[in-house]
Write a protein that binds this DNA or RNA. Structure first.
Lengths: 198, 198
DNA sequence: CCTACCGATCGGTAGG
DNA sequence: CCTACCGATCGGTAGG
């Protein structure tokens, strides 16, 4: 019945992720989590230190996934900026779709982190967004992309991508890579220079 | 000192909106809310029936604002679909910027509504999104817009718009109407048919 | 609008 | 991993 592939701690993280996503961190009680795991509330604490520790692990694991994906996609500076941007978009979608529940928690529940974790998290996110701004700015400077306001463009681009966990369902008609391509196309057709564009 | 323009009930709603936005509905206690209003927790209940009633009012008021704005923008069927879509986008941005705190609550805290309000709310949101899909679909059918997948396009468009409360600050360098135009342009340049587009 | 309070539930711990 | 429990806090009410 139960998957024995996951350690008890990983089971806790995974079950908590699903609950945090659907009910929110604050509204999820340790009793609920325990019940979903088939154990008593007190027993969870032999595997974790606190409720917030679970949230911390989810948020920072995702941050790491986004970062390493971006590095791989955008590091090769020989490639044109537009190509690197497209690869970065695809990486972002890949991370999102690989674990939509964790992604939703990452996107919405981080504010329940207490200091200093919260500030640290926001700094990471800011650095990540700066990577996208940088790529768009480079593309605009080289004339590959049409982006009169790279800050604005980066904001809109990431916004479109980050809405994905609210509608994507694994096993739907579109595979993650298809979604990535469609999103990249839809977003970049609005950025890429074409003949009659000013 | 205090604004006497607002009824006590409206003050409660407004203060609650700000708290629900920054701390989340579940994590905001009635004691916190009372304290922010300069009163005791029990006293709030002479103006409202329950904590959830406040959330309900915020969410459904915004839904109404979005709907009436959309009607006004998109009802005139003589206008081309692309024009109506642009007007609908501008209306959406106007509602968002008119009260970013309430918009953020509308976008993220509705899931704390209990049934049947929750289902009712989701039905309203679905109908609203369908209006955008409809416009995009019409524009695609008439050849005004390039949108091979109107569902996908509508999702991405609203996603980009709905990220606004997370970065918009009233009194910034861009006026709401400027933001509306920029967003509409950035999004529609990716949709509008141009010469060399397939 | 306050004081005083209700039962319920919270995150977390001790001791086994 | 459970039982039994801690102090704190929750949303909400009664009575004035």
């Amino acid at each position: 019945m139960e998957s024995t592939l996951l350690s008890r701690k990983d089971q806790i993280d995974q079950t908590a992720t699903a609950l945090f996503r659907t009910r929110g961190f604050a509204a999820t009680s340790m009793r609920e989590l325990a019940s979903a795991l088939g154990m008593e509330a007190g027993s969870i604490y032999s595997h974790i230190r606190s409720k917030e520790e679970i949230l911390h692990r989810i948020c920072f694991r995702l941050a790491e996934d986004f970062f390493s994906g971006f590095e791989e996609a955008a590091a090769d500076e020989i490639l044109p900026a537009a190509t690197r941007l497209r690869r970065a978009v695809e990486s972002h979608v890949r991370v999102l779709t690989a674990d939509v529940a964790a992604s939703a928690v990452f996107l919405h529940e981080w504010r329940h982190l207490s200091e200093p974790a919260r500030t640290e998290f926001l700094a990471l996110r800011e650095r990540y967004e700066a990577g996208f701004r940088q790529l768009i700015g480079e593309g605009a400077a080289s004339g590959e992309l049409y982006a009169p306001d790279p800050i604005f463009a980066a904001l809109t681009l990431l916004a479109s991508l980050n809405w994905l966990p609210s509608w994507y369902r694994p096993g739907g008609p579109l595979a993650p890579i298809d979604i990535a391509h469609r999103l990249a196309n839809q977003l970049l057709f609005g950025l890429e220079v074409r003949g009659n564009q000013k």
